[in-house]
Design a protein around this nucleic acid. Structure first.
Lengths: 190, 190
DNA sequence: GTCTATAGGGGGATAGAC
DNA sequence: GTCTATCCCCCTATAGAC
């Protein structure tokens, strides 16, 4: 019972990592099973299809994000600290072998992934945007952030940029990613 | 001689479209050949390998972009019109069956594409950034654009955002894409 | 230039033994 | 739960006829 939970969790870890590294159509059950040290069929026992496996990866990530933002260590931060925390998620991806975010990886291949995965991605993206929008509004109301227009639109701008910047850094290097982060802070705190 | 040039061009058109729709690992020679109404092997006659084919797609796009920006219809525009022109490239992608940009598509799958393609993507991305950076500097010097920091960093922010916004729109719809464009204008012209 | 035919590999997925 | 073995499909790429 404990063993199976560990195995399932390890499979999810590997699948998540491979998704962020090679993309949905770039990884296979063979990658996971060889990394895990078992055979192909063992993965199918835990996650019958690739569609089910990747949906489980996203669901876990959504749960994780919900826990984070509802935890007092994030919830009670000042807006500018919340911003730093959010940026650090993406900086950590970059530092971890140049991974991109799940949303970006899966949306780039959106038209060649299963329908159930598309729906999970959509839900995940909405949740990220909603939190970011609330944080930006909170910060502007508090006089910390400075921007024109709707918080929802500024949130979409920032999130799309982080997504793109992780991809950009693969071709142009980590400095470009850091430059984008700094420019966002400059724009927001000016 | 004319016929072969037309065929080669049509193959490049289809490959470019498929790349922007399904990604490198999501399209095959079979897609191209069935769309073109020929057999698999005919494509290999013109472009022996997928690596060579995709490199040719990117090289053509780079040439096209160079022609555009050196043409007086773009070169002589005022900075704010240049900005609109650049945004329209991405709006047109979005309007064309929700395509994403080549750079975003290929960088998302960067670690599962051939090395020669990676190098082409890198060169292309640098050229796009260089032009955008120059345009932003020109606009700020002319007193039309308003932003803090280095033009290079603002260029990276905007380009990464356009790249991400096309992907985002696949899950969340075209309105989100338009919202991002409007927010960029708001930020830049404030 | 395009065809048929096929090689050769990898992919997702399943059956049945242990 | 994991194994071996296997099925079947799609993929990239090539050989040789037309």
């Amino acid at each position: 019972m404990v063993k199976i939970e560990n195995t399932k969790r390890t499979i999810l870890n590997l699948a998540e990592s491979l998704l962020q590294d090679k993309g949905f159509n770039g990884f296979s059950y063979a990658h996971i099973s060889s990394d895990l040290g078992v055979k192909n069929a063992a993965i199918h026992y835990h996650y019958p299809t690739k569609e089910i496996l990747v949906c489980a990866v996203i669901e876990r990530y959504r749960d994780r994000f919900k826990l984070w933002i509802n935890n007092s260590r994030v919830k009670d931060l000042a807006p500018e600290k919340k911003l730093d925390w959010f940026f650090s998620i993406y900086s950590d991806f970059r530092a971890d072998n140049g991974k991109v975010c799940l949303v970006g990886s899966l949306e780039a291949e959106f038209n060649s992934i299963p329908g159930a995965v598309q729906e999970e991605v959509q839900a995940m993206h909405k949740e990220l945007l909603a939190w970011l929008q609330g944080m930006l509004k909170e910060g502007r109301d508090a006089g910390v952030f400075n921007f024109s227009g709707e918080p929802a639109n500024k949130a979409a701008l920032i999130l799309s940029s982080l997504q793109g910047a992780l991809q950009m850094a693969r071709a142009l290097g980590s400095k470009k990613f850091r430059d984008v982060i700094e420019q966002h802070k400059l724009d927001l705190l000016a």
